[in-house]
Nucleic acid binder design. Structure first.
Lengths: 137, 137
DNA sequence: ATTAACGTTTACGTTAACGTAAACTTTGTG
DNA sequence: CACAAAGTTTACGTTAACGTAAACGTTAAT
């Protein structure tokens, strides 16, 4: 008994995507909203799944990868073998995410440099040592 | 006077991409290696550009976005107006990257949960409170 | 009852980022 | 010299992730 189902356009506007996008995700089996006749009714769980999908997409995951990610939360943890496999999977994904974080940090560092150069070039109090290129790039 | 030019296959294998990919980037105007007759010769600067491109791609930037990012390092900072525009651009990009970092952190947190559940379910010393779903998802 | 707003299915179109293949040249090596 | 390895251009193919359009149903309000 969910608090209240969402319409497709509610979710679309909340997440800043088109309804087509949401239907597309369903078409690909990433979500399976209930129906009231023809109309789709999205539960809170559906909403979360969409949120997770979009979160993945923002950092460049494919839809397939997003599915894999989401499915981890609801695994068939029957035997120890499966659990170990899942743990290995988790490890992989963690490595992957950490690499992306490093990538982002490197880019942020680049932005810092550019900003400093701009500002000093705009008349921020002039540096004693003139701002040479740092080595991060 | 670069230390020594790279061949296309050297760079391809160093970065784990195909030569096709590198030629494609050139086709799109992202790099412009020198030539020895027909053969391409990549300078250290070319190498850096490729590195930056791939870094961008890993976090889901399009090639176009990568170009924009790279071009910031070599701007036409003539007047103050341009510099202010550049600073605004930097700000935008920073926001964008920080959002992606938040996305990644959220996903890492999810991984932590899954891992804990797995491990405790595998016979890590059993919890007193049975490991209920936390609220982060 | 007739619009207007929102929903639905079906289907073809599009863009980005390469893959793959063919046909050819250049370069080093036994 | 012969031939294999690596390089080149040209061109068509492919996949993912939607966009866009047509044609239609449902409900709410004027």
């Amino acid at each position: 008994m969910p608090g209240r189902p969402y319409t497709i356009s509610e979710l679309a506007s909340e997440f800043g995507v088109t309804t087509r996008t949401i239907r597309f995700y369903e078409e690909k089996g990433l979500i399976s909203p209930a129906r009231a006749g023809h109309k789709r009714l999205y539960s809170a769980a559906d909403r979360v799944r969409i949120k997770l999908i979009l979160r993945g997409r923002r950092i460049g995951m494919t839809l397939r990868e997003c599915v894999g990610f989401i499915d981890m939360y609801d695994p068939a943890h029957d035997n120890a073998e499966q659990l170990h496999a899942l743990l290995a999977d988790v490890k992989q994904r963690r490595e992957n995410l950490l690499q992306r974080k490093r990538d982002i940090d490197a880019m942020l560092a680049g932005l810092d440099e550019v900003q400093v150069l701009c500002e000093s070039s705009l008349g921020g109090r002039p540096r004693l040592e003139k701002p040479r290129n740092r080595n991060t790039l």
